[in-house]
């Protein structure tokens, strides 16, 4: 079943990028490439439940992305104000923020989300906590208040 989705996705990707549906030669070459890629991926065992999650994860993902985008807009606005402020009100600091995501997917999403929102960069993933460089005290507190973690955990849902 996963391989069926995999092949459909590859075909859709090829179709979108080439767009040459009238060109028979390109379509045949595309089909051959997809077959070859599927074969190699199967041998390397790349298509597992993590890279091809169930439908529920996709639904939760589409709910998470708008939330993340809004966080990015909010924190961009904050950095925007500080950069143009003549006094440059920043107080950079290193903070450690614990995380309790259960899956690699959740941890990576959490770390990337922290980096995407301006004001905080994930430097290192340690045992059970992130090492974060924060531009301001407010940004540091924002990471530690746990609201983003709650969102990521909702995204993780029931992945086993």
């Amino acid at each position: 079943m996963r391989y069926l989705i995999f092949v459909v996705l590859l075909a859709g990707f090829f179709g979108l990028l080439s767009g040459q549906f009238h060109n028979g030669f390109l379509m045949v070459v595309g089909a051959l490439c997809i077959a070859l890629i599927a074969l190699i991926s199967a041998r390397m065992a790349l298509v597992d439940e993590e890279s091809y999650p169930d439908l529920g994860t996709w639904v939760r993902m589409s709910l998470y992305v708008p939330y993340l985008f809004w966080q990015i807009v909010l924190s961009n606005w904050d950095v925007f104000k500080r950069v143009w402020d003549p006094a440059l009100p920043v107080s950079p600091q290193l903070v450690r923020a614990p995380f309790s995501t259960r899956t690699a997917f959740g941890t990576v999403t959490f770390a990337n989300s922290i980096t995407l929102t301006p004001g905080t960069v994930t430097i290192e993933v340690l045992e059970g906590e992130f090492l974060i460089h924060a531009l301001t005290t407010e940004a540091a507190d924002g990471v530690k208040d746990g609201s983003m973690e709650a969102q990521v955990k909702r995204l993780e849902g029931a992945i086993k």
Binding site: N76, V79, L88, T115, P118, V121
Partner: peptide, 14 residues
């Protein structure tokens, strides 16, 4: 910005 890390904040993410 004063140093490497803080510069990355504005450069990489805006």
């Amino acid at each position: 910005m004063p140093d490497f890390y803080t510069r990355l904040h504005t450069a990489g993410k805006s």
